[in-house]
Design a protein around this nucleic acid. Structure first.
Length: 250
DNA sequence: CGTGGGACCTGAACGC
DNA sequence: TGCGTTCAGGTCCCAC
């Protein structure tokens, strides 16, 4: 899915599109849009929340109610001003939950690790030092660090010149630093380009993100490394496609 | 503790 | 055209 930059892009757009609107079928108003890790939070004026996880193929679209149905439209929330919030999901892995109050929300979020784009370096270092698993697995473990998925994990590791199989606790201070900076950089670029519309992801206004045009290694197997021109290789780590340069990422 | 595999679902791309 | 295979921004659960 949608990783941190995609969900953050959705959050920002929804802020201008639907804050202040009423959800007609629920009789509540939307007061604020939030995000925690890869979860989108819609704050309601009855102290409740609508929480979405888009998994691999979820989309949240804001349309006029007279607009034609969207592909894979699963949930439709009628809004004031003739708008609709549509949750579309080809593979049906995504979900939406109504959460009654802050305590329930906290419970839902309690296991998530710190946000990948705001964790302190000291904490980041500590998290990596306590696991022998491949660093790529740790980066994608939402209970350790949250928000990073397969695209940005691959790109950050390439940028930091780290082999994705390296045990997390074996990274030198120097490499840990490089990785910390690389994660911030790729997430920031992801947000700057409005996310990666490689497959299903679209912004709420229906337009595509552009980060897929700036992939560093993700999805580039067989193509030349952007630094050394050696062919990018695809392997599988933890069941996920993993892309890296065998020359730059020893 | 850690890993590997399968499950959940659907659709696109590619090989024959 | 059609059929089979592989792959896909995620997470959960179970066996070893």
């Amino acid at each position: 899915m949608p990783e941190l930059p995609e969900v953050e892009t959705i959050r920002t757009q929804l802020e201008s599109l639907i804050v202040g609107k009423e959800i007609l079928s629920m009789g509540v108003k939307i007061t604020k849009i939030g995000r925690r890790a890869k979860l989108l939070l819609i704050y309601l004026d009855n102290n409740g929340y609508l929480v979405f996880h888009l998994k691999l193929t979820g989309r949240i679209l804001v349309r006029k109610n007279s607009d034609p149905k969207d592909d894979w439209q699963r949930i439709t929330l009628p809004l004031s001003d003739d708008l609709e919030l549509r949750f579309c999901d080809a593979r049906k892995f995504g979900w939406m939950k109504f959460i009654k109050n802050k305590e329930e929300l906290d419970k839902l979020l309690e296991k998530l690790g710190p946000e990948a784009n705001s964790v302190s370096f000291e904490e980041f270092k500590k998290i990596l030092s306590t696991s022998r698993r491949p660093v790529k697995i740790v980066l994608m473990d939402q209970e350790k660090i949250s928000g990073v998925g397969n695209i940005y994990a691959n790109d950050a590791l390439w940028l930091a010149k780290i082999n994705p199989r390296t045990p997390a606790n074996q990274l030198s201070n120097q490499l840990t630093n490089q990785l910390f900076d690389a994660i911030l950089k790729v997430l920031k670029d992801g947000i700057k380009y409005g996310g990666a519309s490689d497959q299903h992801y679209l912004k709420p206004d229906g337009t595509r993100g552009e980060y897929q045009k700036h992939f560093l290694v993700y999805g580039r197997s067989g193509e030349p490394c952007l630094k050394c021109k050696i062919k990018i290789v695809r392997i599988v780590i933890g069941g996920r496609g993993t892309f890296y340069c065998p020359n730059c990422q020893k």
